[in-house]
Nucleic acid binder design. Structure first.
Lengths: 122, 122
DNA sequence: CAGAATCCCACTCGATACTG
DNA sequence: CAGTATCGAGTGGGATTCTG
């Protein structure tokens, strides 16, 4: 058995795992990637992250705000305007998540081929 | 509204999103990180990825195998021995996922502080 | 040992309708 | 516009038991 690197996140009781569970999430990844371009309002985020429902976007943003990754700016206007922005902490998360998104795109052909081969064997 | 990078994965119909959904997952991340050290058998993976159930580990490994990220080697022995290994494709996924795990560990203090502050406001 | 099978709960997520 | 409320289908994931 190979030597494993000491990695706290692999321990069930370590709080960093709750954080990993949040950031290792497709919606989180897409929202953070979208926000990396700069401040955006709710409706623009919704169209940037194609297919996300208002409910899930709201919940995702709340969780990211709670974890200090996103800030919420409410402007007292009519109609209401709410803008979301990455915090400094949020910006440090962009590179890792962007890398994940890039991997998905760069290797989709191989993944699809592997799936087809696997399913053909069954 | 900021200029968004053209990113296929942000499109709901793009197949790369199904791939992102698989890799942006806490169990996937921990399994791939564990396997990056080399070939491992089922039971060792189970203890490396603390807290994962046999069922979820089996399903995660099946999905990763289907996507061409992991290979499964069955040895005709008694008792049975099954080893899992990252493919070449799987190895390209290690760096991004390791970066995510490191982020979770490196920033857990800030995240916990943000949570506490957020919850105190409610 | 490495799983398969089963049961079941909790949570995710989408759709729809409504509100400030 | 930016949500909230509610409902319901689907999925994730744990516990337990059984098998080759």
């Amino acid at each position: 058995m190979p030597q494993l690197p000491a990695f706290d996140v692999m321990t069930a009781t370590c709080p960093s795992r709750t954080s990993l569970a949040r950031i290792a999430n497709k919606w989180t990844a897409m929202v953070v990637i979208a926000l990396s371009a700069g401040q955006m309002r709710f409706r623009d985020l919704r169209s940037a992250v194609d297919g996300i429902s208002a409910k899930v976007l709201t919940e995702t943003l709340r969780d990211l705000e709670r974890d200090g990754i996103v800030t919420r700016h409410v402007y007292a206007e009519v109609p209401p305007r709410v803008e979301y922005e990455l915090t400094a902490l949020g910006h440090t998360l962009h590179a890792p998540l962007q890398a994940l998104g890039r991997w998905a795109e760069d290797h989709i052909t191989e993944v699809l081929a592997a799936r087809e081969a696997y399913d053909a064997r069954q």
